[in-house]
Design a protein around this nucleic acid. Structure first.
Lengths: 369, 369
DNA sequence: GACACGTTCGTGAACGTTCACGTCAAGCAT
DNA sequence: ATGCTTGACGTGAACGTTCACGAACGTGTC
């Protein structure tokens, strides 16, 4: 004990500036300020029924003790402030932050907190993300990539809004009308005179990331099941549409990155030099495809048109500027939050009407097609 | 009431599937399963000392009642799982998600939760963001844009790590060596033969977003105070360096978006047609500058070189690919999390040595300069 | 048959805060 | 003096969970 009795600047209770001991509680503050718990509460929460000088004295004491009210004790007695989990596969893909930004904004407006998880770093799955989020949140919004049933099981009665898939066993779902998107894109390409199409799909999560997928010519013949070589529902919609439009379409598969898409597109162009129209899984990969076309000396859209998918701002910065099947991402975020809001407030019933939305892309014409 | 007495699949206590009443507590489960609180705890948390069949019966009961343990009660008795707030000005700028992604990854590895706030939507400030986060978190990491003192005051003893500014009154700070960055860039441009430089700075937050800032020729003459027309420390470093290298440099100011930067650059090029080297506040705005140069029919880098700042992946997708003063964003995130980790564990003392880091950009040479 | 022992389960206490009261004194009218 | 109001402050109870015990019940051992 080196504390001398005449110590200046600390006429407080013992242990006032104590180092690494225990967190200060409301009782410590009350004792140090010579008042009761309730008065401390009144001082800290700007409640009436306390004399201004008392309030200030208590606040000063709290400051000196480094007192911070326990959010757990507060939450326990007051009933939860709602906090929602946001499960995102990859913040590095500009699509997701654009969506997340909207969710965070609208959630904040409602006084919610957003606990974010960017899973997929260590190769985690959406379900693992929900598992990590679950103990901390009252609801989850997320791109889970399937497995909504397991996620809902983990959450119990707490609402779950899944994106890019129908609700299924989840509380709510927002999915996208890929058939409509595909038809819109192919109609446009057909009108432009494109005849030899290609679609670059995203490789499934489990696929080997090192070896870009095979380039397969899938001349769509009715009755042929192409599901195996076309990993995503998005891709399958394009295959269906190509058949309906009677257009030839090659499908290539690439991991979800611009660099991989560039490489895959290069191979595609070598094996199918006559390709005059390419649709790509998303805008990020489309950027890679544009690079590959430039590498091969082709002019876009004169030699080959390109259509991306997402509508992220990135597209406007590319050269040529990217024509894309755009989603209004702020709108998607708004839909998700409003759906969740309805679920939480009880004005919407899980699995009931209005919990399974279908959103449409619209074609934004820029230079590349 | 349409519930018939012979209803199957629900032999539980009354109110089992009750609609919107009260949240089920551990006591409800205990009563319904015919056991005690503690046994329910043991069943839910996979603790030993419970018979497998009991465990399963309890779990099933909990599932049916939709029981979810209160995170508040749990936290109160167990001591907090740490959750950190992440205050970000704008998730729409690709710089921030790249950083956030790294923070979320490393925080998750440590078992922390990340509460994200994307302030700046409604024109909120960093301090307001901290205010919103404070009741929910044990620490904050953030790009606050100054005002670290107020933020720290709100947080009390809880650690605060600020980015892009020295720690000051905050617990820890990570800042960037802009003088070094500026010297690196200008040295390169000088070697390339550039003689008429321009720097495009970001307009301060309070500035009118509609009217892009003035284009001012700041031929650096020693003794002239240019601080007023150069809003950021980043910009001031470039002005200083230009003076040191004895290079002419015009400073223009633009709101932080590619579209605005494009517009400002266009005006800059009209007023200063001889410009042969441009450095831009960040990569996003540099993308706009590249567009403006293309608009004016100039070749990059032949007619005019461009150097961005940040090192976000976007730069590689542009045409021409963007030379940039890159920050290793995963490294920045790692530094922030490790700093916070030290602060939280007590191995680092707030304001002590090692809490104020200075990171350096390195020049990534691509096509644009 | 007494004892020790392991397994399974239940009970008091505690976590830190707020809510709903209760108390006490001062001021004022009757 | 009495009663009533008002302002400032204190006290019991409750929120829902886990921790540290203790009780009850077999099961084996000597």
């Amino acid at each position: 004990m080196t504390t001398s009795p005449g110590d200046a600047s600390s006429g407080l209770a013992p242990g006032a500036s104590a180092g690494r001991s225990r967190r200060a509680t409301i009782l410590d503050v009350a004792a140090a300020a010579g008042v009761s718990r309730q008065t401390v509460t009144r001082a800290m929460n700007a409640m009436p029924g306390i004399r201004p000088d008392t309030r200030e004295r208590v606040q000063e004491t709290a400051r000196q003790l480094g007192y911070t009210p326990s959010r757990f004790a507060k939450g326990l007695v007051q009933g939860a402030r709602t906090s929602v989990g946001l499960a995102i596969p990859d913040l590095t893909n500009p699509y997701y932050p654009a969506f997340a930004s909207s969710v965070v904004e609208l959630a904040t407006q409602r006084g919610w907190h957003v606990v974010m998880d960017d899973y997929g770093h260590g190769g985690a799955t959406g379900v693992e993300s929900v598992q990590h989020l679950a103990p901390q949140v009252d609801a989850v919004i997320g791109y889970l990539g399937g497995a909504a049933d397991e996620a809902q099981a983990i959450l119990g009665r707490r609402p779950l809004v899944v994106l890019d898939q129908p609700a299924g066993p989840a509380s709510g779902g927002i999915s996208f009308d890929y058939d409509h998107a595909a038809q819109t894109a192919l109609r446009h390409l057909q009108a432009k005179g494109c005849r030899q199409l290609a679609y670059i799909d995203r490789a499934p999560a489990g696929a080997d990331q090192r070896a870009p997928g095979p380039v397969r010519a899938n001349r769509p013949t009715p009755g042929t099941d192409t599901a195996q070589s076309v990993p995503t529902v998005r891709g399958q919609a394009f295959v269906r549409s190509a058949a309906a439009f009677d257009m030839a379409m090659t499908v290539a598969v690439s991991p979800e990155s611009a660099a991989s898409a560039r490489q895959v597109t290069r191979r595609l162009l070598e094996e199918h030099p006559g390709t005059d129209g390419i649709v790509v899984f998303n805008d990020l990969m489309a950027a890679g495809a544009l690079k590959a076309l430039a590498d091969s000396g082709r002019a876009v859209p004169a030699d080959c048109a390109v259509i991306g998918m997402d509508g992220i701002p990135l597209g406007q910065l590319l050269t040529p500027e990217l024509t894309t099947l755009a989603l209004d991402l702020r709108e998607v975020g708004r839909a998700a939050v409003e759906l969740l809001d309805g679920l939480l407030s009880g004005s919407l019933e899980a699995g009931g009407p209005g919990t399974d939305l279908l959103l449409r892309h619209h074609l934004v014409l820029r230079q590349s097609a």
